[in-house]
Write a protein that binds this DNA or RNA. Structure first.
Lengths: 229, 229
DNA sequence: TTAAAAATATGACATTTATCAGTTCTTGTT
DNA sequence: AACAAGAACTGATAAATGTCATATTTTTAA
């Protein structure tokens, strides 16, 4: 059967590729595969995770509830990414919720498999470390964007990000469709403000929309906007 | 002499404690100690680092220049923290500048010592990984604060953070004194806005000031403010 | 298919924050 | 001690963003 980790291509994109044949076999024997419908949670902020989730298909938003009751989306995770790693490694409850933004297929890998490999396979640990170093750098960038760019710039950037990371469909719309609320939670603004700016972008010919779908029409101008004209 | 890593207490607070006796000896033989005056850089954004810096004394701000020419301070690093780890591990140029906020003493450890230990000592790698996992969580929190809290709340939180992490002096002022500009760069706002809010806090009896020094007068109210009453 | 619910959109207005211009206070230097 | 340079501060005003109310469209489910 093709659902053995040893044969899974997804693995090539994450730290699991540093596992040995035997380690992978063990993982494969203990893992379980699970389908998650759009809108359903994979896990919730504050939960104690018994393992990590490897995304085989679909996209998940990683978000954190703020004191004022709004969710802040910290990251969008797609095919190949491993969710819950941070909290399993730090042996803490997770600080983020993971909710499916599209229908998903994820593999659950019990933390024991991860932990014993971390203890025994320095290459694996190093690989995980490198991934986390990368995530940390991205988080730094997000901090700077959040505090130094205007909402308009952040929304423009979000669209460019969606295009670069998830591509476009045949009709030229962004392949990943987010609700206006999700967009506002990515850039950290009020939903109405996001909607207003999206309308403005449309009027100015930077994007085109159809329902909640958004397509990029003038990428150059969007880039200029992000960089401050 | 007491400047050998094996005897350095600072080490207890960071991932170096997971090194073996021999590894520490090697580190100690290759490390160099350096004094950095307040305001001087340890390294600058974009530099390629040939090693990491272990903070023995003093405080450094880690910041990133934004497109609009303002610095965003991402973290304040103090005694025991290791700077430059992320970029050495990811083998990338550093994404942050490190500038001394008070007079400092740091040890430079060449990356070779770090890398060989990462290859050979899984415990060390795991320890570094745990630290980075912690940093990542903190970064997530900062993102949420930046996007969901008002400037007023962020400044209040910054003062509480400074008290909790650096303590107070004998006269009840925060032990770490930051310029108004640095404060504004921590919370991501214009210097004038930060000053205005600090004046307001003073009028309301939440803090007291003397020159650039700030002391917390009513911690409870500050906490309430951060949490949104 | 249609009614109800949810999401999107828009307007009016309040609030927050940035910007610019200028003054006063500190600090370090000679 | 005097002065220059840089911080800190204040006011006036503009710009950005949030909030609330309401209309319209889209989606969902009976």
């Amino acid at each position: 059967m093709e659902s053995r980790c040893e044969n899974c291509i997804i693995r090539q994109f994450n730290s699991l590729r540093a596992m040995s044949k035997e380690e992978l076999k063990k993982v494969s024997d203990t893992k379980t595969t699970k389908k998650v419908k759009k809108g359903e949670p994979i896990f919730q902020e504050g939960e104690k995770l018994n393992g990590v989730f490897c995304v085989r298909d679909g996209v998940s938003k990683l978000s954190k509830l703020s004191a004022n009751g709004k969710d802040q989306i910290v990251k969008l995770a797609t095919k190949g990414e491993v969710l819950g790693q941070r909290s399993v490694i730090a042996e803490e409850c997770t600080n983020l919720s993971a909710i499916a933004v599209s229908d998903m297929e994820v593999c659950f890998i019990p933390k024991e498999s991860i932990n014993t490999t971390l203890q025994k396979n320095p290459n694996f640990t190093l690989e995980v470390l490198r991934h986390m170093a990368h995530d940390l750098k991205e988080a730094d960038d997000v901090i700077v964007n959040m505090s130094q760019k205007t909402v308009k710039q952040r929304i423009a950037e979000a669209f460019l990000y969606l295009k670069n990371n998830f591509g476009e469909d045949d009709d030229g719309f962004l392949a990943l469709t987010l609700s206006r609320e999700d967009i506002s939670n990515v850039v950290g603004t009020a939903t109405e403000s996001a909607i207003r700016i999206i309308s403005e972008f449309k009027k100015k010919g930077l994007i085109h929309t159809s329902g909640k779908k958004v397509g990029i029409k003038n990428e150059r101008k969007l880039v200029e906007l992000v960089e401050g004209f």
